[in-house]
């Protein structure tokens, strides 16, 4: 630590003279983004129309779209400019992995969606901020072929963020802990995404999930309650599997590759002793 590096000082707004101010601004943006998402959710649940038969839920749809979109944009704006180039270059890879691996897993015929493998992979290698930005950007890129995923950007960002937190906390050091983290992430992400499905789309996109929602509706639940329950059935299982797959992929990477990531070195994300090479 005492020896100065001989290379140029690290670039980016996160370093240099104005670093404290820039970091504070970034935290304000992150907090504002999280607050927008949380506030929108609470508002939607509190003001949900008691009787959806009275008319379309245009009001709730607009609030859900606006609030969640604002939150996702703030999170991207907070995270993106300070990410190192090695992480930024990995993000397009993760976006495409989300799509391609999702389709590949779909070919096994299992009834889950698996659309976050790349996001979780990035979060494990590069941290919560990178995970959140990847999740939100992934929804934006995917919406070029399927616009209905755009409103779920906030939920995808939440998945990436929580996966990064789990990695920082060491839950990816043991293979059996990763699915547990995924299960908890799935609960939160499912609950946050349910108002979008209920108010923006009026239901779920799949026939299988639709059947599940129908079953809860038949018992007399409101639409939001039925979709939240459906999400609590599907999402935790799905995310547990996604986290397990991401863990398997990270373990398969050579150590030479994984220790290139400062996040992995700093928080000892993977099992094994810390590399002995100095950081400078």
């Amino acid at each position: 630590m005492s020896q100065q590096s001989l290379t140029l000082p690290a670039t980016g707004p996160g370093s240099g003279a104005g670093s404290a101010k820039a970091r504070r601004n970034r935290h304000v943006l992150e907090l504002a983004g999280a607050a927008a998402i949380a506030g929108t959710y609470v508002f939607l649940v509190l003001t949900q129309p008691a009787d959806i038969a009275n008319g379309p839920a245009s009001f709730s749809a607009l609030v859900a779209l606006g609030g969640f979109f604002l939150g996702a944009v703030l999170l991207i704006a907070a995270a993106l400019p300070v990410l190192p180039t090695s992480t930024l270059v990995l993000m397009p890879v993760a976006l495409v992995l989300n799509v391609v691996l999702g389709q590949l897993m779909g070919s096994t015929g299992l009834p889950f969606y698996f659309d976050a493998i790349g996001t979780v992979l990035i979060a494990v290698l590069a941290g919560p901020a990178a995970g959140a930005a990847t999740g939100a950007l992934s929804s934006i890129v995917w919406s070029f072929v399927n616009p209905t995923v755009l409103p779920f950007a906030a939920g995808a960002a939440l998945i990436g963020f929580l996966a990064g937190l789990a990695a920082r906390g060491g839950l990816f050091r043991r293979f059996y802990l990763a699915p547990v983290a995924g299960f908890v992430t799935g609960i939160l992400a499912g609950v946050v995404s349910a108002p979008i499905a209920a108010f923006v789309f009026g239901g779920t996109a799949g026939v299988g999930t639709g059947a599940l929602v129908s079953a809860f509706r038949a018992m007399g639940d409101t639409l939001l309650a039925a979709i939240t329950k459906q999400a609590l059935v599907s999402d935790p299982m799905d995310k547990a599997i996604v986290f397990a797959i991401a863990a398997m992929l990270v373990y398969a990477l050579p150590r030479r590759t994984t220790v290139q990531f400062p996040f992995v070195r700093r928080y000892r994300v993977l099992a094994g002793k810390a590399p002995e090479t100095p950081e400078a």
Binding site: D51, I52, A53, V145, N146, P147, T148, F201, G202, G203, T204, A205, G206, V207, T209, G210, A211, V213, S214, R217, A218, G220, D221
Partner: peptide
Amino acid sequence: AAAAAVLLPLGLSLLMLHGLFFPEGR
């Protein structure tokens, strides 16, 4: 083609969901 891939499952699901089970319906 892209719209059909998105909208057909959604439409079927909505029809099944609200067409058959709509407790608020009179």
